[in-house]
Structures are given as C-alpha cells and as structure tokens.
C-alpha cells in the first residue's frame, strides 16, 4: 500500500492560517492503514487547528470529513454540495488523492496534510518499509521475489556492491542488503544460476523515466 506520514503541524498551520472556513478531508484507504490520513487523523488535526485558532483569538470554522477513497471521482463527488462552503481544504490523502480532490474542485485551494513516501508494507504498527517502485515491468520472478530496484540503494541489477557490510546496506546498517537477501533466497530456491548470469541493462521507459504513465485497458472500457 501507499505509505505516508503526517506533515509537521507548523507547516500545515502556516498554510491555512489566513483562511476562515476549512475542510480537513481524510481518506479511508491506504493512509488510514499507516495512520497518517484516516478519520482519526482528521479529527486530531481538526481539533489541533481549532485549538490553534481559538487561542490566537480567531474564529475559524474547521470541519471534518473522510472519504472512502480520494483517488476516485465517485467518492470525491460526496463533497460536491459542501465544498462551496469552504475557503480551502487540507487533504490527508496521499499525493494522488490530494491532487484528484484539487482537480475535482479546482476553484478551491487544496493543501497536502501528509508527505507521501512510498509503496510498502506494515512490518509492524508504526514501522513501514518500501517494497516496490512501480518500474512498470516486474522482475521479481528473476530475483527470488525480492526487488533490487526498490530495496537496493543503487537499484543494482547485478549486485551486491562492494559497500555492503555484514549483509547490511552501506548507507544505513538498519537496511538489509537486498542482494544478500536475493542471494540467500535464490540459494534456498536452488536458482543460484540466476545470480551468476549477468542481467542486461533495464528498459526504464516503463518507469518514471518514460514520462507520466497511463494504463489503458480496452478490455475494461466501455
């Protein structure tokens, strides 16, 4: 899932301090799971902003809402009869949802309330780590199910590099060396021949390098 973390409160306050009617819009999707942008975080942020405005002697209306998903028009449409009542919105969805909210209500200012970080897993509550960079052409079948593009600091396809130390990445001893993991997994799977074969340069055109991406599924479109 997409992982995000709350933006510093002072940054959000700085963005919204001159408005009088605010909507804090959460998303019940990915950001709820990593506790950055669901209904609960909406309530916390709204309460904090109300406290801020009240102690500053300002009467500002801070309302709360959370949508099933902000990355879908049908759910965003649920705000259609309310949005005119606000000067600005803070979206606690990921960068995708925040943009789609702004796109749908393009006469309103939408501020991001979270920093969208990566696609990853919940290792445990409050500990999330990256697993995929959406390169657009999955190579997990060749690498023992471990992605070197997302998990090697140098996205090497023929790792490990000479800087990994005791199975850990050179840039941070808390990060396991992806290629050490891949080697061990391939060994377990009896596929070490894959490790010994040089992997050709990758076609990055399906990744970010190819420009903004789009999927068109004619089989699904009417």
């Amino acid at each position: 899932m997409i992982k995000a973390k709350p933006k510093p409160l002072e940054e959000i306050i700085d963005n919204v301090k001159d408005f009088n009617k605010l909507l804090i819009a959460g998303c019940d999707g990915c950001v709820t799971v990593c506790e950055a942008g669901g209904l609960k975080e909406v309530k916390i942020l709204a309460a904090a902003l109300r406290l801020y405005f009240t102690q500053a002697g300002k009467q500002v209306q801070v309302d709360e809402a959370s949508l099933t998903r902000q990355c879908e028009k049908e759910y965003l449409a649920q705000l259609s009869d309310r949005m005119d009542g606000y000067d600005a919105a803070v979206s606690l969805a990921c960068g995708v949802g925040a943009q789609y909210l702004a796109e749908m209500y393009n006469h309103k200012i939408v501020f991001p309330g979270v920093d969208t970080c990566f696609m990853g897993v919940n290792e445990e509550r409050g500990l999330y780590s990256e697993r995929c960079q959406a390169c657009g052409r999955c190579i997990l079948a060749e690498t023992g199910g471990i992605c070197p593009i997302a998990r090697c600091s140098k996205r090497m396809l023929n790792g490990p590099c000479g800087g990994s130390d005791k199975g850990k990445c050179e840039i941070n001893p808390d990060i396991p060396c992806a290629w050490e993991l891949i080697y061990e997994r391939l060994k377990t799977l009896g596929q070490l021949d894959r490790f010994e074969r040089p992997v050709e340069p990758k076609d990055w055109s399906t990744s970010r390098d190819g420009g903004p991406r789009k999927i068109v599924r004619e089989d699904l479109r009417i």
């Binding site: 600091s153 140098k154 996205r155 090497m156 396809l157 023929n158 790792g159 590099c161 800087g163 050179e170 840039i171 040089p198 992997v199 050709e200 340069p201 990055w204």
Partner: peptide, 23 residues
C-alpha cells in the same frame, strides 16, 4: 557503480544508476 551520494558533499542530489557496474 560508485558510492551512494549519501556519503558525499551533495547528499541531496538525485542519483542515476541507469546501469550498474556489470552492465
């Protein structure tokens, strides 16, 4: 492949790593 920029004097830069040393 080269040391990661994390160690250097421009640690906020983007890296490339289009190829690796073997490639």
């Amino acid at each position: 492949t080269g040391d990661h920029q994390h160690f250097g004097d421009h640690s906020s830069c983007a890296n490339v790593f289009d190829l690796d040393s073997t490639q």
